[in-house]
């Protein structure tokens, strides 16, 4: 109970918001749009899970949005040239793995600070994409959207995929040895090293995993419409980090769960539609989002202080 305090408090906030919506805007619960809204969040969820794991290991990755955009355009171009979805997926995941490996090598191998390394790679990948794609949309051939399934089938598949990833990921972190090592390295790298964990390899694997997830997320986004927008990754890194933070992942590492990331993202991605449904003017959106992030951390600050006394 105590260990899931943050997850539960976010869940309660989310529940209150959902009740308000149920009373004042019952249209929010219409089946089809709800399904579309949830499906659209699956790529962000996959990305946020990756960033969550990175943050648990006491690192950060702000290049995920650029990685996502580059993978999406690459996969789109492969698919548009008639190579089919499996090849596109392989291309995106390989590209993601390479970009993740570069980050991982610079951070774990060269011992450079992750925020600076990923700041540099964020700019690099974004500019490379702009130079090559010049902002042009990629038009995908028929049969790519929804994996060639019906819209309903595709949406149910994507949502289930997202949920399964959360369950598997949370289980992996909690029970598998690499998962425990990530927490260990995140809470105290020196202690982890002394207890025989090779912290460099753990950090490296975390960034590889991040790259793989970025490539995967890009493909899960690509199958939702017949065109790829090269700007699709812009700003995603902040959403992913915010989801983790709201969901209780400590920036100092070693603390937090993927369930927290999951409810954090659900809360953040409910705020924006809620404003539309409650007819709040759009110009309040950023201020309200900032307030929610601050409230989440302030609440945590008070709780931690209380406990430490």
């Amino acid at each position: 109970m105590k260990t899931y305090f943050r997850e539960l408090s976010v869940l309660v906030t989310l529940a209150i918001l959902l009740v308000i919506l149920a009373i004042f805007a019952p249209h929010f619960y219409e089946w089809q749009p709800l399904l579309s809204r949830l499906t659209a969040q699956v790529p962000a969820l996959i990305l946020a899970l990756g960033v969550g794991i990175v943050m648990i290991s006491r690192q950060i990755d702000i290049s995920v949005g650029s990685q996502f955009g580059l993978c999406a355009v690459l996969a789109g171009t492969v698919a548009a040239n008639g190579y089919g979805l499996p090849t596109a997926l392989a291309a995106a995941v390989s590209a993601g793995t390479l970009m993740g490996a570069l980050n991982g090598w610079l951070i774990a191998g060269m011992k450079l600070p992750s925020i600076v390394v990923t700041l540099a790679t964020m700019v690099t990948w974004a500019e490379v994409l702009r130079l090559f794609q010049q902002g042009k949309f990629v038009n995908l051939p028929a049969g790519i959207q929804w994996f060639g399934l019906s819209q309903l089938g595709g949406q149910i598949f994507l949502i289930s995929f997202g949920c399964v990833t959360v369950v598997v990921g949370a289980h992996f972190l909690k029970t598998r040895s690499l998962g425990r090592y990530i927490y260990a390295v995140g809470s105290d790298a020196e202690a982890a090293r002394l207890s025989g964990i090779h912290s460099g390899w753990v950090t490296f694997s975390v960034f590889i995993l991040m790259g793989v997830l970025a490539g995967l997320a890009a493909v899960l986004n690509l199958v939702q419409s017949p065109q790829v927008d090269p700007k699709c990754g812009v700003g995603l890194e902040l959403r992913a980090i915010a989801a983790g933070v709201v969901g209780g992942i400590a920036v100092n590492g070693g603390r937090g769960t993927l369930w927290g990331v999951f409810v954090g993202l659900l809360l953040l991605s409910t705020i924006n539609p809620a404003l539309t449904f409650l007819h709040v003017e759009a110009y309040w959106e950023k201020a309200i989002q900032g307030l929610v992030i601050l409230l989440a951390v302030v609440a945590d600050g008070f709780r931690v202080r209380h406990h430490s006394r």
Binding site: A40, N272, T276, A282
Partner: peptide
């Protein structure tokens, strides 16, 4: 009834339109 920004991104425009359609029957 409403004016929404999409940050010049197609996917964001899609979410905003989904919300607009269902919030305003």
């Amino acid at each position: 009834v409403d004016t929404k920004p999409c940050d010049d991104q197609k996917d964001k425009a899609q979410s905003e339109a989904t919300n607009l359609i269902s919030a305003n029957p």
